Simulated scan of single mutants.
Amino acid sequence: MQGTRNRTYSAPSFAAFTRYPHVTNVISGTVTALRAEVSDPEGAAMVHTVLTIDVESQRKAGAPTTAYVREGGGVVTVEQVRATFEDKMRRKLTKKELDQKIDYRYEGTEHARVGDHVLVVVTEDSSVRRPDAYSLLARLVDRRDGIPSGSGAPAKAASVAFTWAGEAPNAAWEKTVDADSLASLMK
């Protein structure tokens, strides 16, 4: 386990992690929209992306069938995080500089894309008080027999093979979650 990780990810397996008390829900579904946001743009700007997920299955009975999941990172314009850059550069930025995009990634994890078939482990989003809003703890992506999700290629339930979008939060955890493992996570 990397030194930068906290005890949140100390479970001996991914399946055990999904049973921790702070895990609110485990959701399988398709990303239908993305919205990058910046909190505190005038101070220590934090960039995150809200994934809208059309829920196919979930552990939490009676939960809404659309979930909004906040994930660290995203692509924003420099203007959205202007104060951070102007403070560091000690000057006002030009319009051309402000229009440039900047990609915030946490630990090299690729960003979700519209059309991705995902498996997410979530906790309550304390910044938003609604039953369909969550904060991401872990995200895996189903590459559907090696075909990138979002490609429009049909998939069979038996071919589900979720893999980590980046590095697994704990190197000892499973590298993939198949259909059988997914079914057990939803119980």
Rank of each mutant, 00 (worst) to 15 (best):
H117Y: 12
A11D: 05
T77H: 00
G29T: 02
E42P: 04
A45C: 11
Q80S: 05
V78Q: 03
A183R: 14
G108E: 06
E42K: 15
I102L: 06
V121H: 08
D142G: 08
E167K: 12
V120Q: 05
P12E: 08
V118N: 06
P154E: 07
A183M: 14
H22Q: 10
R113P: 14
S151N: 06
V81C: 00
V177A: 13
L34A: 01
Y106Q: 11
A155K: 09
Y9G: 02
V118T: 06
V23D: 00
A45Q: 11
P12C: 01
S57N: 12
F17T: 00
E37W: 05
E167S: 11
S159P: 06
F17K: 00
K101I: 02
S28A: 10
D40H: 09
L140S: 09
G152Y: 07
V78G: 02
W164Y: 08
V50T: 12
D142L: 04
R130L: 03
G3C: 09
E110C: 09
A133Q: 07
R70L: 01
D125A: 05
P154D: 08
P64V: 03
S126L: 04
Q100S: 07
L34S: 08
M186N: 15
Y104M: 05
S127C: 00
S13P: 09
S127K: 05
R59D: 05
P21N: 07
T18E: 03
T94H: 05
V76M: 03
L182K: 13
R105Y: 01
L98H: 04
